[in-house]
């Protein structure tokens, strides 16, 4: 599971519609809005990191969004993201030590 805090800035006059569109995106929750300046804080939850980056791209592509960047990233439960390595990088099955197969092929 991936949790990140994303800062979004929208043109203030479009704030209500941007907030509605953000909330409609999968895994995205608007947590805080500053009406005067158009600043928004959202938290995004995504199954994995590609989904999370896709999510950020979707936010950036919304009409009237000026800026959207990740600010905060929670790492603690992320250890397993490395399980799915590109094939050429998988370790050799040797008990002595991990020499990546890539080096010796």
């Amino acid at each position: 599971m991936n949790l990140s805090g994303i800062f979004v800035a929208a043109k203030p006059e479009w704030l209500p519609s941007v907030v509605a569109e953000l909330n409609a995106l999968p895994g995205v929750e608007v947590h805080q809005v500053d009406e005067a300046t158009g600043r928004i804080v959202v938290v995004q939850e995504a199954a994995d990191i590609p989904a999370e980056i896709e999510g950020l791209k979707r936010i950036k592509a919304l009409p009237h969004v000026v800026t959207a960047e990740m600010v905060y990233h929670y790492l603690a439960d992320d250890r397993q993201v490395y399980d799915d390595l590109p094939a050429e990088l998988v370790e050799q099955d040797s008990p002595a030590c991990a020499v990546p197969a890539y080096l010796n092929d």
Binding site: M1, L3, S4, G5, I6, F7, E29, H31, Q32, D34, R39, V41, V42, V43, E45, V71, Y72, Y74, D77
Partner: peptide, 23 residues
């Protein structure tokens, strides 16, 4: 991770994010 813990975390992440950008 339980739902409430997750919600709690999200609140915390949002607050940290807001503080980081000066809200």
């Amino acid at each position: 991770m339980g739902l409430s813990r997750r919600d709690f975390l999200k609140t915390s992440i949002a607050a940290s994010t807001a503080a980081t950008v000066g809200m």
